[in-house]
């Protein structure tokens, strides 16, 4: 019999098991039953048992499966997804510091040009339109207070 459990699957099994243990450890001071009624640890205990049983079943399922898992390679082979996720993290970093609209303008330029491979002309127009549209919709129409970041002085004036 050929064993088809892949490394990502083994890591998943370990993560689920740690999760089950964490449910028990993090509620260790709480009662399971409290004067005949279920206490705050009652449900986490059930969940921890369910996780442990399911984890074992998952491992067995993969262990005895005769089919190759398609999860042997879980990370993308192309660059675009990394750039996309990376720009999401950049937005998180810049959001409060630079302000919402300039952040969208800058990351928009990067996304449209590098990820979507649009021409410079289309990139600039699309980024500007996107920044203005989101500002008008969220700040003006919906009344959401977007962070102004570096440009707060402009609003204070």
């Amino acid at each position: 019999m050929r064993i088809r459990v892949t490394l990502p699957e083994l890591i998943t099994t370990a993560v689920i098991f740690i999760f089950a243990i964490a449910l028990l450890v993090l509620t260790r001071g709480m009662p399971i039953m409290d004067e005949g009624s279920p206490g705050p640890r009652f449900f986490p205990l059930i969940l921890a048992i369910a996780f442990a049983v399911l984890d074992l079943l998952y491992l067995l399922e993969r262990f005895f499966s005769k089919h190759a898992s398609n999860s042997a390679i879980i990370f993308p082979k192309v660059l675009k997804p990394y750039l996309y996720v990376g720009s999401a993290f950049v937005i998180v970093l810049l959001w409060e510091r630079l302000g919402a609209v300039p952040t969208i303008l800058i990351t928009g330029l990067f996304q449209f040009r590098v990820i979507e491979s649009l021409s410079w002309e289309k990139t600039i127009i699309a980024s500007l339109v996107m920044s203005v549209f989101t500002y008008v919709l969220f700040q003006r129409v919906l009344g959401i207070n977007l962070p102004a970041g570096l440009f707060t002085w402009l609003l204070v004036r």
Partner: peptide, 14 residues
């Protein structure tokens, strides 16, 4: 993809 990312971010922040 870009529009989805921006709308998601604004939506979640709002």
């Amino acid at each position: 993809s870009t529009v989805v990312l921006f709308l998601s971010i604004f939506g979640v922040y709002s």
